[in-house]
Design a protein around this nucleic acid. Structure first.
Lengths: 185, 185
DNA sequence: AGAATTAAGTCAATATGACTGACATAAATT
DNA sequence: AATTTATGTCAGTCATATTGACTTAATTCT
């Protein structure tokens, strides 16, 4: 199998498009800062999600299941409505995935104490163990990614990621992730 | 519209699952480092891809089109095979998306000079302009994300992202992204 | 020159994860 | 009593991806 093989990805022909324009093609005028960051993010995120994807494939589950499992495990007793808000998907999309997780004994629904309309979500013992396995995979990758970087790099990455998020959502997300570190300047 | 609304995401009930285990539920024993990084990455990447997603929705294009457009624009004259290797999708998946981009006058295919089997890919003038627009959106977000961080933070983020990638792919990806900065220690 | 390999494209069938819009039920709130 | 909220469900659709088989043309290998 040829694995990744984009050995000749960079062509010798540098003509980008019809040379009908009067611009020099590669004159670093106003354009391409952070091209590399854009692409590194793409590849990094792909591999980051790849670990749990592969692990879940054995259970016939996909990334959607992972996301639901993760946030339920992290927020035991979360309401369906709030989970929908976090994931920003529709009730229908969640419904199918959630049903499969419940049927598989990964997630449990309990009636709300004060409000009996609610179906509060919890991971079962099995579900919690699975969630931990998946988290461990991603933690291992994160640890590896921080090796060799100066002290405090994890804090810089945290702040970078937070500021990548739409400003409007940041405070909600901060509450949700409840980082053990500062982040609050 | 209730926008994001996960105000009550964190339940007061902290029982994670059946308390049938002898473990204290929240005793930070061996487990949850980088929980926040895992979640920040999820939200950051979603918003990062959201900008181009929204922009492309007007053209009836999706994220798959963006990826193809991006890598063709960055690697003019790339072979179909190499593009498949970069995106790690199948010929069939690429085929449909590529056809739509060609039909829309965004991407152009030219016969290889030395090897006439090849259909080398180029962005058209329009395609290049569109790619630049989308890139600009993401660059703006990246710039904003680095504001207020110490000097050299961009370099730390670059190294972090590179080390998030599977070690086997790193050298190929480094060639591809051809970062203007160091990254090579 | 003939065989094997490579580059690209195509066909059919399928799966996953998402969507919209409408509707239903029960419970809580006003 | 009327309204709103929380959840679930139905039917239909779409975008992106998959597998496996097969074709055509061109290049390379022996």
């Amino acid at each position: 199998m040829t694995d990744i093989n984009f050995k000749s990805a960079i062509s010798t022909n540098t003509a980008r498009h019809e040379p009908a324009e009067g611009k020099p093609p590669e004159a670093g005028d106003e354009s391409p800062l952070f091209y590399d960051l854009i692409e590194l993010l793409f590849f990094a995120y792909r591999d980051f999600t790849g670990d749990p994807d592969d692990a879940l494939a054995r259970f016939e589950f996909g990334r959607a299941h992972h996301r639901v499992l993760h946030f339920v495990d992290r927020n035991p007793g979360i309401m369906v409505t709030d989970l929908l808000g976090i994931l920003r998907i529709t009730k229908q999309s969640l419904g199918r995935v959630l049903k499969q997780l419940v049927d598989a004994g990964i997630i449990e629904q309990r009636e709300g104490h004060h409000d009996r309309r609610q179906r509060l979500l919890y991971t079962t013992e099995r579900g919690h163990a699975l969630a931990e396995d998946l988290t461990r995979l991603q933690q291992t990758r994160l640890e590896r990614a921080l090796i060799g970087l100066p002290d405090g790099s994890d804090e810089i990455v945290r702040r970078f990621l937070l500021q990548m998020i739409d400003p409007d959502s940041r405070s909600d997300i901060l509450k949700l992730v409840r980082s053990p570190f500062s982040l609050k300047d």
